[in-house]
Computed example of a mutant assay.
Amino acid sequence: MSREMGTNKTDVFIIADNICSPLGRTTQQNFEQIKNGISGVQKHDRPDLSDVPIAASLFKNNEFFVPGTHSYTKFEQLLIASITNALSHTDIKADDPKTGLIISSTKGNISLLETEENNSALQKRIGLNTSAQLIAGHFGFINQPIIISNACISGVMAIVTGMRLIQSGQYDQIVITGADVISKFVLSGFQSFQALSTERCKPFDKNRKGLNLGEGAATVILSGDEKYQGNIRVTGGGITNDANHISGPSRTGQELGDAIIKAMNNAGVKAEDIGLISAHGTATPYNDEMEAKAIMLAGLQKAPVSGLKGFYGHTLGAAGLIETILAKQSMEQNTLLPTLGFQETGTAPLNIINAVSNAAIKHCVKTASGFGGCNGALVLSK
């Protein structure tokens, strides 16, 4: 146990992680690609997904991630591949009664509605609880898996939930994984909002025109075991809601600002302690402006801001996990990652990073916002 802000609070360490994306199958591959300025977002002509060409970060069509089996969907294969890689770096046992499993996704197997007959069997198959049980069974988890599906904050919320479950003593270690795949259903929804850019997105830029979508999976393994002293810790979290609009974000940024402040207070850090903000940065006109206002309301306008969706697109339920893992890597390697596509400020003024640079980062804030007005923030600490 460690003493923070006058109270006993269990340290929660990140002990392993994985990113599985079109940029690579491991965290290190992904980090190196980003440092080299390589983006997974490309132009695609995919009639199976869209009647018009799209800019997105997609795996190759019909690619398999778990060789030798056709019993898992693409969504489930991504989760299995990511968890397998992350677990390989630990001695964690899935069948330990003190090991938990959290799965983050926004859409799961919804794409099956496009290819299968809609009947009661399909309705069961597309349920996130069905996928969760299959994943748990594959690895031998004995505890009931927890599903977090709260729009685009799902990944961040899953990590905050995992931190709190370890601090409460319910689990000693938790495997947190998330994924989403892009389907016609998902694309058409964003197209109906006119939220997609036909070019690679430009977070926080004056000429941003919308977001790109992306596919990916990521896994973070958390532990409260003191033997991991020296690892990056998850030290704080905050969740709020705008109660503003089903799809439009708050115009003031106050509620995301509140989530950031809650997370920093929970972590026992001040604004001047933050060496990096890993932003949600969707590159949509309203979200980026709201997020910039929120960052200023939290007193973080001088902190370096990195938005990575120019590399990955918006990976939905995986986004918070992917971006948290890369923030952790930034802290460990004292490297700030660039906001690809950013050239000229188009929001309330922030300290946007647009080139790889060196910096000592002791604390990092990760933000997320989503449909329904949900907001999340967490703090990572060295």
Rank of each mutant, 00 (worst) to 15 (best):
A360I: 14
I166K: 04
G100H: 03
A243R: 11
M296T: 13
S306V: 09
N8H: 08
S154T: 10
A218M: 04
F342L: 12
S223K: 03
N358W: 07
Y171D: 00
I221Q: 07
A355C: 13
A94P: 13
D45I: 12
T161E: 01
N265I: 01
E4Q: 14
N36E: 10
G40R: 12
R251F: 01
N375P: 04
K35N: 04
I174A: 01
S278Y: 07
P97W: 05
L49K: 13
T177M: 05
E289W: 06
A359T: 03
D180Y: 06
F59N: 00
D225C: 12
T367M: 10
G275M: 02
E116T: 14
I159S: 05
I176Y: 03
T99R: 00
I146H: 04
E215A: 13
D172E: 14
I19K: 02
K328A: 11
T73D: 05
E332C: 07
L101I: 04
A151N: 08
I322R: 11
D95K: 11
K43A: 13
S250H: 05
V365R: 10
G178A: 06
V181S: 14
S21D: 08
H280S: 11
A94F: 10
K206I: 02
A298V: 07
G155Y: 03
G189V: 00
C374R: 02
C364P: 06
F190M: 11
G178N: 02
T240W: 01
G6E: 08
C20A: 08
T177W: 00
S197Y: 04
G178F: 00
K262M: 15
I246V: 12
V234E: 01
F185M: 11
T347L: 13
I38C: 05
T367W: 11
N244G: 09
P249L: 08
S330A: 15
F190H: 15
Y228A: 04
N334C: 15
T198E: 13
H44R: 15
S197N: 11
G373V: 02
I166S: 00
T219G: 11
G370C: 06
P203H: 07
I83M: 08
G320Q: 06
K293S: 00
G178M: 00
F64G: 00
F31I: 04
E344G: 02
L211V: 05
A303T: 15
L78M: 10
A348M: 07
G317Y: 00
A283C: 06
Q29A: 13
N118D: 03
F64W: 05
H70G: 03
I361M: 10
Q123Y: 09
S104T: 01
F65H: 14
A292E: 01
D96S: 15
S88P: 08
V181P: 01
I153F: 06
V52S: 14
G230E: 08
L308S: 09
D91R: 14
S357A: 14
K366V: 11
D11Q: 00
S154H: 06
S111Y: 14
S149M: 07
Q29Y: 03
L78I: 05
G100C: 10
L87D: 03
T284V: 10
G68I: 01
G372Q: 05
G140T: 09
H314D: 07
E215D: 02
Q167V: 01
F75W: 12
A195R: 13
G230Q: 10
I166H: 01
P304R: 07
